[in-house]
């Protein structure tokens, strides 16, 4: 390679790697702002501010969903399988809201540790399946359960 071109290439590599490390440091410093939501573990550790609009997310705990019969108010727990967080919400849930599914809620953490949500979003996972497969999986699960 010609000396001039080699110099130019080295210069570009140097500039780009300097920029990359600067950007890396910025992103690292802003990590908490870039994270879309607080996990139940972070909230349990007291990292989330109280009475401030934040997002909290996790898996909806199985069997935790409780609806009030006369209104749209409901409550459920989200968990990361170590800590769990009670979420209260009034409104319509997205179609994909299910127990065992991930959700992200926007709202405020109250002093008593309950999260008061004004918006609940469903988080989809990266798995896709045709309905027949899940039916087969379910029926297999049920038959194995009934054999106990």
């Amino acid at each position: 390679m010609h000396a001039v071109r080699r110099k130019r290439l080295l210069f570009i590599v140097l500039i780009v790697s300097l920029l990359a490390s600067a950007l890396g440091l910025v992103l690292y410093a802003l990590q908490q702002n870039i994270n879309l939501f607080y996990s139940p573990a972070q909230i349990a550790a007291g990292e989330a501010p109280l009475e401030t609009t934040i997002r909290a997310g996790g898996m909806v705990e199985k069997g935790s969903l409780a609806r009030q019969p006369d209104s749209l108010t409901l409550a459920f727990n989200v968990t990361d399988f170590q800590h769990s967080l009670r979420i209260e919400y009034t409104g319509i849930l997205p179609d994909l809201f299910r127990e065992g599914q991930g959700v992200v809620a926007l709202g405020k953490l109250r002093g008593d540790g309950v999260f008061e949500a004004s918006e609940v979003l469903a988080k989809h996972d990266e798995k896709y399946m045709p309905p027949e497969v899940t039916d087969a999986l379910k029926s297999r699960q049920m038959s194995s359960e009934s054999s106990y």
Binding site: I34, L36, L93, P94, D95, L96, E119, V120, L121, A122
Partner: peptide
């Protein structure tokens, strides 16, 4: 329809 929002400012 899936998440319940058009847009969020996630990464």
């Amino acid at each position: 329809p899936t998440w319940g929002t058009w847009w969020v400012w996630d990464a």
